[in-house]
């Protein structure tokens, strides 16, 4: 299952992706930003829930 990775090819692909995204229209880019915002909020919320659950478990264990 080992696959060799050509780092320079990988970096070139990343750069090409960055260039492709940079060429999108402003409207399309803002749409992506909106999606990133939603995703980031969802991660923050789930972290908050996990934190609350962890604190609840800890406090139950200390009782």
């Amino acid at each position: 299952m080992k696959k060799s990775v050509n780092i320079s090819e990988l970096l070139e692909k990343k750069a090409a992706r960055r260039r492709r995204l940079a060429r999108l229209s402003f409207e399309e880019k803002i749409e992506i930003v909106r999606r990133l915002q939603k995703l980031s909020r969802a991660i923050k919320n789930s972290r908050g829930e996990q934190g609350r659950a962890r604190r609840a478990r800890k406090s139950a264990a200390n009782r």
Partner: peptide, 14 residues
């Protein structure tokens, strides 16, 4: 950030 996004690839900003 929003002005930057006009020129370069989009990234998270609020």
């Amino acid at each position: 950030a929003v002005a930057a996004i006009f020129y370069i690839e989009p990234f998270t900003t609020y």
